[in-house]
Computed example of a mutant assay.
Amino acid sequence: MNKIEEIKEYISLLENSSLSVLEIEKEDGTKIHLEKEHPAQQIFNASPIGAYQPTATDVPTPAPVQPQAPAAQPAAPEEDAKTVNAPIVGVFYAASAPGKAPFAPVGKKVSKGSTVCIIEAMKCMNEIQAEDDYEIVEVLVKDGDLVEYGQPLFKVK
């Protein structure tokens, strides 16, 4: 595969994923850094000189703004509820294989160092271990979901 085709393949992978940055370092020392442009970062050009410009009669007057009810306040978090967050970006797996029992179901007490889930990143299966002793209160993601760095995976106490 020539380098142009390889780069096009990397671009296609980035465009068809939820990732915003892709960095690759090859064995020969070649580094590739690709970033998606976020909609908020897009720059829109002004219309060229002589192009149509709306006048005051072309623009409809906005409707009066109705006052809205105050937004509901979020519920106060439980004082003793903590979360276990994803240490990397990847695909979340609750068990070692499909059909197997999950590592950390609701109600299970896990000890420091025990595996709570697997996150697959770049075809590597990464076992995520408990950083402390706790009980699983709620599993916040589904098996096979793509998770982001820092995303809460479990509620624990």
Rank of each mutant, 00 (worst) to 15 (best):
M1E: 10
I4T: 13
I4R: 15
I4W: 08
E5C: 09
E6T: 01
E6Y: 13
I7V: 15
E9Y: 05
Y10G: 03
Y10K: 05
Y10Q: 08
S12L: 09
L13H: 12
L13V: 03
L13T: 14
E15N: 14
N16W: 02
S18V: 00
S18A: 04
S18F: 05
S20A: 10
S20Q: 10
E23K: 14
E23P: 07
I24D: 08
I24T: 07
K26C: 09
K26D: 14
E27V: 10
H33G: 07
K36W: 08
P39K: 09
A40N: 11
A40I: 11
Q41V: 06
Q41R: 12
I43H: 10
I43Y: 05
N45D: 15
S47N: 09
I49Q: 15
I49E: 15
Q53D: 11
T55K: 07
A56N: 03
A56M: 09
A56T: 11
T57Y: 10
T57W: 05
V59C: 04
V59D: 14
P60L: 02
P60V: 01
T61H: 03
A63C: 01
P64K: 04
Q66L: 11
A69H: 15
P70T: 14
P70K: 13
P70A: 15
A71Y: 07
A71G: 14
A72F: 06
Q73H: 07
Q73A: 10
P74A: 03
A75L: 10
A76F: 01
A76Q: 10
P77G: 07
E78K: 15
E78I: 03
E78W: 01
E78A: 15
D80W: 03
A81D: 13
A81N: 12
A81E: 11
K82D: 14
T83R: 04
V84M: 05
N85S: 15
A86Q: 08
P87L: 06
P87F: 01
G90D: 10
V91I: 13
V91S: 14
Y93E: 06
A94T: 02
A95G: 10
A97I: 06
A97D: 15
P98Q: 03
P98I: 00
G99N: 02
G99M: 01
G99P: 08
K100I: 00
A101Y: 08
A101L: 09
F103E: 12
A104G: 02
G107D: 13
G107I: 09
G107P: 11
K109M: 12
K112P: 08
G113Q: 00
V116C: 06
V116Y: 00
V116K: 02
K123I: 01
C124G: 04
C124V: 12
M125R: 00
Q129G: 07
Q129P: 05
A130L: 02
E131A: 11
E131M: 08
D133R: 04
E135W: 04
E135L: 07
V137C: 08
V137Y: 08
E138I: 06
E138L: 09
V139L: 05
V141F: 06
V141I: 03
D145R: 00
E148N: 00
E148I: 03
E148A: 05
Y149L: 14
Y149T: 12
Q151N: 02
P152D: 08
P152W: 07
F154T: 00
F154C: 05
K155E: 13
K155N: 15
K155Y: 00
V156D: 06
K157F: 01
